[in-house]
Design a protein around this nucleic acid. Sequence first.
RNA 1: GGGAGCUUAACUCAGUGGUUAGAGUGCUACCUUCACACGGUAGAAGUCACAGGUUCAAAUCCUGUAGCUCCCACCA
Length: 896
Amino acid sequence: MLDKVYDPKGIDTKWQRIWEERGVFTASRDSGDSPYSIILPPPNVTGQLTVGHALGTTVQDLLCRWKRLKGCNVLWLPGTDHAGIATQTVVEKSLLEHGIGREELGREKFIEECWRWKETYHDRIVRQLGRLGASLDWTREVFTLDPGVSRAVRRVFVHLYEKGLIYRDRYIVNWCPACRTAISDEEVEFRDHLGKLYYIVYPFADGGGEVVVGTTRPETMLGDVAVAISPENPEAADLEGRMLVLPLTDRSIPIILDDVVDPEFGTGFLKVTPAHDATDFEIGRRHGLAPFIVIGRDGTMNEAAGRFAGLTVADARAGVLAALEEEGLLRNVEDYHHAIGHHDRCDTIVEPAVSRQWFLRMDSLAAPGIEVVERGDVTFYPGRWKNIYLSWMENIRDWCISRQLWWGHRIPVWYCTECDETIAAVDEPERCTTCGSAVLTQDEDVLDTWFSSWLWTFSPMGWPEKSRDFKIFHPTSVLVTGGDIIFFWVARMIMAALEFTGEIPFSDVYITGIVRDAKGRKMSKSLGNSPDPIDIIDTYGADAFRFTLMKLSPPGQDLLFDESKVEMGKHFANKIWNAARFVMEQPYDDRDLFGGSPNDDPLNAACAALFGRAPSAGAAFGWEDRWIAGELVRALGEFERAIDAYRIDEALGIAYDFFWHAYCDWYLELSKPVLRENGARGRGAALTARFTLALSMMMLHPIMPFITEEIWSLVAPGAEILAASRIPGLPAGLVDPSLAEQVGQFQEIVTNIRNLRQTFRLPPAQGVRVIIRCEPGAAMQERLERFRRQIVHLARVDELEIAENVPKPAGSASAGLTGLEIYVPLKGIIDIDVERQRLRRDLEKLSAETEKIENRFGDGRFLQRAPDDVIARERSRLEEMADRRDRIARILEEME
RNA sequence: GGGAGCUUAACUCAGUGGUUAGAGUGCUACCUUCACACGGUAGAAGUCACAGGUUCAAAUCCUGUAGCUCCCACCA
């Protein structure tokens, strides 16, 4: 039996253990079921999971569990990422706290430390995923530095090298002075900054006058090699080639012409510093001007900076400005808004620097990646991400793939010390391929972390071997991730899969929203505003957390998360628990409910299909039973449609509304008196209550796996556990639209009577007499007779009179529905004037609405142009409202 | 500079041409009725940012304006 109070903690851990023991999430290598696969975006081993991870993970788990219920062979592949820069940084920091520097420790020992760190956080992440209920196939877990995937990385490198797409170049790259490594363009985060624009005088070398350049970085003038002007400058012909004295130095630099200069900007004179500015570097290349480096790798000025050597960039700037001022060469300073690049991992200002790095040529890889998305082979949800992806791919730039780190995949390139040959190889070569020398040294750098991640749909499946897993599960079904890594990862995975497997990596890309705090700030470690999902799960339960995350995050919409919102999920879980308790505590046992022989009744057949046992011959179903079963089947259909469209929030709304508002509010309330009778109808109701509960658990299981599994084990004892079950095929004919409509009318009658009771403040205990006058004709009367008992019960009516022509009692509260008039005689209790006013208000509302529609009809164009079904609907609506209006008017008349 | 998204009840958000615009929370009144007060019943609450336009019909489509958020860009 279920405990009186719902306590998720024990239930969660119990089922987590059972699932694991039973191995229900291990994908099959020899099943004929249609495959469904998702790769978990591998979390970084630097830390713990955030609420954002919980969101993405829950989406994936929900899809996987749903597909299992639908009979698919599901593979959800877990893995973790070594996260080069991030991990190296945290390990370095923690070593420094013990006074140990990376250099003194040495490369090998340092990497050992990183592995230790990885183990600790890996285990923590696995625990977190488990608590969340993630149905991952741990038998296939991978880490980005595992031997298999490492080998795949080297193969890919060598393949691209041999194809001529990977090259080494001395080029200007984004350099992080704090991490002491190059980073890619994507890792630079631009932020607006209020700085200054400094105007500096450069005198002509021949003494005749001067030019003025504008710059935001005066300290870089020490590395200037030219001043550029636009060829459109009217004086271009005269100025080109003239020499300028570079202030504070003993160098002279020429004036050159370059198209990149905007003649309208500043003075029209651009100082050219190829060593410290990307644009300037390109200008330098075009004009054969070598970079003059004045800032070192650590972000301080070097020897070439002369008297400023050793200063930080900031100090050098102050020094240069003071010196210029002294010499009268600082013409002007103005405020200036511009964007400054920061390293996204450590927030340090990025210093463009010239260094020797490995690059991957991207354009030929991008072309097929553009094609598959344009053709619709890969679809983004929501669709607007398609354009973001395409515009990036169409303007793609070469990828700087080398990092000056120790933690990562070492670049598989060796240099011959004898003949300088460069050898790229999957396995370490013993001898130089050219001169045969055995003295080879491997490149010191490692690869960008994303160079292993971009192979993630296939490298964990044993590629390049054509493994069973690869054959069955590649391409994967859907990728679920945040929009922030669409360039880092999604786009690159598409390119890699096409290049190396000839297949798309996934057909759908579901982009989740970003989780922010209640104030709209992005959750981040530095702000300390991201709660640990484990704490939330401890307080509210995993199911409540999952439900809330899914319900509150429509696709692509950011989620302002606040722990108190999880109350919603907790309330729902509690509701489910108590409803289940009610159903399971009814005094009927299996012998009462099962053991008959199967028959053609759809509800009977549905119960047999779900429970594997035919209902007892002594159980009889009522209209409530057929109605709720039909509602559930309808809800299931809508639920599935919503999931297939990745409208998870909508799917949850459907399940929630069904369970709470149809099943609990109406069905269980309707069943109570029937259940108490303990006869054939009672058995039918008990059976239906169980059937609907059990099938609801199937629908809710992907969202709330723990509580549904617990309830399932009681409502379907002996059956397969839910996580390993399939939704049975259900007989046609369970949905009866005519019955649904009649029940809708019934609900309206009950609500109206309740409304009358409340309006006149009748205490709940006080019974009332209700008279329903209905339009002539047997159908309506019969229908009301059929509902009589339930109306009496739910509206707390003592005596219900139903007839075509019952007299309206004096002093009564009334409501006019379509085809019906409801009277509650309240002589002496109600204030007739209050009642009259209430009815007049109703009447006014109706009249206003009727008028609106009549105007529509009055305008001939509506009849001409609107589609027939709309006209028909409006017409019947008009009739219905006219009917109601007449009825209320008549009631009012009778009051006089 | 280019682009995208958002603006709907007190709050957080659904709703993309066709009934009287919905939910959760909060609020009001009544109810501890033998599943649930993490509950029930009934209710109040919205010029759908603003201004034009298209249409028989606009929260929904178009144009513009304002505010907020984000992305991209060789803003010296």
